[in-house]
Structures are given as structure tokens and as C-alpha cells.
Design a protein around this nucleic acid. Structure first.
Ligand SMILES: [Mn+2]
Ligand SMILES: [Mn+2]
Ligand SMILES: [Mn+2]
Ligand SMILES: [Mn+2]
Lengths: 225, 225
DNA sequence: GTAATGATTTAGGCATTCCTAAAACCAGTC
DNA sequence: GACTGGTTTTAGGAATGCCTAAATCATTAC
């Protein structure tokens, strides 16, 4: 059964459940409600529907987990979303803080045929403009990055792997700093008491808050000096 | 008020009313129902809603006409639709018998910003792949072509202006014949009793049914020999 | 162990958009 | 001027997806 057999709402629920499940395992009603901007009561209603469709396993009061069928659809929606983001940025020059909103709508109406054409035109990309991996056609997805910029210690270097794409203002801030996937970063100093990090990007130093640094995933980290 | 203030349904109703109104003036409930694939009863219900929104003028039992506000929205939706068709064909190589279905869905979720980017990338095109004019940003739209291929007499030549885009199978047939907007056509013979026309396209002669020829609009017609 | 607290579900509604069946209307015919 | 066939509207209902308020559950604090 193709994506289009399910409503936009169902698609967004499954996608969001997948996201939360990656980070926190079993997905609680409230967490899902918060992420979707719906009331917990509404989420309970939809969850029951998803369970009836065998897209999630639901234990009342215990949250949900995706079934294989549900995960397959979630990955298809995420593939649409990230391919579209990449296409908008690359082919149409849409700024990276705007691609998310556009993809959020387009992802639900993209045909499989057009998905393939976009994939081919882009040369089969593996990540979206924010560094998030694009699921392959068969539903394969590499494991998420575990290290965040805020985890690094003074003197460590790393490569920016992925930045959170949900807050356009934060993305504009990252762009100003030159903080993009693929760019090398060095931690020059870490202020105590949860204070800011001083990082070097492109030979320029910037102070960034600890919380913001938690929204940046890194890879290829050098050992502690 | 931007497009997005109205539901997909409302957008499709207005677009369809505009189309029918161009051909037949005042739009009857049944005509609208048929075009949309809804029951007449449903159409009556929606019509009342559109009237309450001041998007159509509604006279019970007498059908509807778009108000200026309704026409403005219709033209915006049609602009989206045709720009998208053109973009899909030109930038992504989607065959011309498939662009309509894809555009039908995408048209409702296209932002004004992306609309502008697509317009610019294409070099501000004036027609879609089927020859239909693309409304300008300000809502300007040239008058429809009045002469159809089936109106021509033996010996007359003309240029293909526009073909109907609602039947993918017919579009594939046109493509086979080389019958595309911009191509010159000459009527070699017209069979009597509503029979077929023999036309020359690209120096090749084809017999086409009278009805099918009615789905082809032409311009630059030569005087009768 | 009980009591408070926060999370979750249930109950009852609302808006949207569609449907079928039945009633009402309109126009052209006799 | 009544009949009649087709058109249109009204009546009543279903599915989807959301809401608030109230009840219930589970857990943590004492
Ligand atoms: Mn979405
Ligand atoms: Mn992204
Ligand atoms: Mn549409
Ligand atoms: Mn077209």
C-alpha cells in the first residue's frame, strides 16, 4: 500500500512517532501531542486508529511503538521530506531555513515517479541540507549521530554532521556563523556552570550557548587533548 | 488573503467554476458536479458556502458566477497549476500526459515564494506544456482561443495553440502524431457526415476523428483557399 | 500505604466535506 | 393551464480530525 492510501494526518503522526522513537524508545502520548501541536486527547484518538490499522502497537497508558508496516510508511514520508528539502535548496535556491516548511506540505503529495526523478536529478544524495540522512528507497537509514557539539571538551575538533531544522531563526543564526554540515569545528574553550562554548569555524571564533550547541551533531571527533 | 486561507476543496471549486464560466457563462450546479466528480447535492452545499464567503454570486436554481474576489483566487490556483506543469515537464522531464495529475495536488501547497522561484528559473513562461496560458502574477490572462482544428476546412493551415489536457491517453495519442503547441498543421481533407479530418503534421498525413480534433485549438489560420 | 500530581483516556462537541433519498422547482409540451 | 422530465435543493447521515472538560490511571513523595 502506497503512501497515498493514508491521510496527511496519519503520515505526519507516523513520521513524528519515528523521530521520537529514535531518541526515546517508546513514544508517550504527551510527547507526541507536544511535537504535533495537538491536544493529548486528540492524540489518543488517532493512536487508536493507527493501532487498528496495525501501524503502531498501543498499550493504554504505556504509549506506542511503530510496527514494521508503520515504520515503512514513516521512512517513506521522511524520504520524501528530505529529498524535497535537498531539491528545493539545490535546484531552486530556497534558503535552508525555509525548506522545511515547504517540504512539510509537499511531502504528502509527491508521487513515487516524481520522487525518483528528483532523486536522479540530484545524483542520489544521501543527506538533506541540514545533514540529516535520506532514507534509501528500500527503507535503509544509517544510525543517528550520538555526539553533539555540546559534548566536546576544550581542544577537541570535529566535523559538523547535522543541525536541527525545526527553528528557522536558529538556522539563520547557524548560517551566519558558517556552521553547516561538513564544516570543521574546534572547541577553543568551555565556560563552566553550563556557560557558553567558544568554537572556531573557518578561522573565526564565536561564543555559542550550551543549549544551542546541543542542537548540533558532530562526527569524526578528535581524541581529548 | 492568500490562497492558503482557503481549503483545497474551495480552491478546486473556484478553479473549476472559472473554467466552465469561460466556456458557458453562468455555471449550473450539475455541470460543476460533473466536472468535479461530486454529487449535485454536495455541490449545492459548497456553493452556499462560497456565496457566504463572497466568492461567488449565487441565485438558487440559476447557478453561480464568480465575484472579483473568487476570480482572483481561481486565477491564482490556475497560475500555480500551469506553472507547475511547465516546471515538471521542463526541469524534471515528466511526460506531458502525467504533469496534470501531479500539478493537481501540488498546486494547493505551493508557497508564493516558491512560485516566484519556479517562474524565474523557467524564464517567466507564458504557457503550460499543453499550450494553455499561464495567468500573470497580477491575474492577467489572455482570452481563450476560439478556433478549433475541427473548424478548419480543406486546404487551410494553422498553428496548434492548445490541446486539452484532461485525458492522458489522448495526450499520448497527440504526442504520437507530433501534434504539439507551436507545430504547423494543414488540413488535407475533411470527410463528410462528421467523418475524420486528414491533416498534415511535419510532412506526414494522419486521419483524426472530428471529435478529437475538437479538443485542439489553433491560431494563425490561413484564409480559405 | 496513602495522597497528591501529572499523564492519559473518556465523553461530548464542532467543522469540513462528502453521500443517498426525497422533495421542490422550472420549462417546455400538449 | 396542467403535466412531466430533468434539475436543483433539502433532509438526514457518515467519516475524519480536531477541541475542552471531566474522569481515571500510574507514580512519586511522604
Ligand atoms: Mn507534513
Ligand atoms: Mn531537514
Ligand atoms: Mn487540485
Ligand atoms: Mn495543462
Amino acid at each position: 500500500m502506497p503512501l497515498s492510501e493514508h491521510t496527511e494526518s496519519v503520515q505526519d503522526y507516523l513520521k513524528t512517532i519515528f523521530d521520537i522513537q529514535r531518541e526515546h524508545g517508546r513514544v508517550a502520548t504527551t510527547a507526541l501531542a507536544e511535537r504535533l501541536g495537538n491536544s493529548p486527547a486528540s492524540v489518543t484518538g488517532m493512536i487508536k486508529k493507527l493501532a487498528a490499522l496495525n501501524l503502531v502497537e498501543y498499550e493504554p497508558y504505556q504509549g506506542v511503538v511503530l510496527t514494521p508496516a508503520g515504520e515503512k510508511i514513516a521512512l517513506e514520508v521522511i524520504r520524501h521530506h528530505r529529498l524535497i528539502e535537498r531539491y528545493l535548496a539545490e535546484a531552486l535556491g530556497v534558503p535552508w531555513d525555509q525548506v522545511h516548511a515547504e517540504a512539510e506540505k509537499w511531502e504528502h503529495v509527491l508521487s513515487e515517479d516524481l520522487e525518483d526523478r528528483i532523486d536522479a536529478v540530484l545524483g542520489y544524495p544521501t543527506t538533506d541540507p541540514h545533514g540529516a540522512p535520506i532514507p534509501k528507497r528500500d527503507g535503509t537509514l544509517p544510525p543517528p549521530h550520538t555526539t553533539r557539539l555540546s559534548d566536546l571538551q576544550t581542544g577537541q575538533s570535529a566535523t559538523i554532521a547535522e543541525v536541527s531544522d525545526h527553528d528557522p531563526a536558529m538556522l539563520r543564526y547557524f548560517a551566519e556563523l558558517g556552521l553547516r554540515p561538513g564544516v570543521d569545528v574546534t572547541v577553543v574553550a568551555v565556560a563552566p556552570f553550563g556557560g557558553p562554548l567558544t568554537v572556531r569555524l573557518d578561522d573565526v571564533e564565536h561564543a555559542v550557548g550550551r543549549e544551542v550547541a546541543g542542537y548540533v551533531a558532530v562526527c569524526d571527533v578528535t581524541p581529548v587533548g
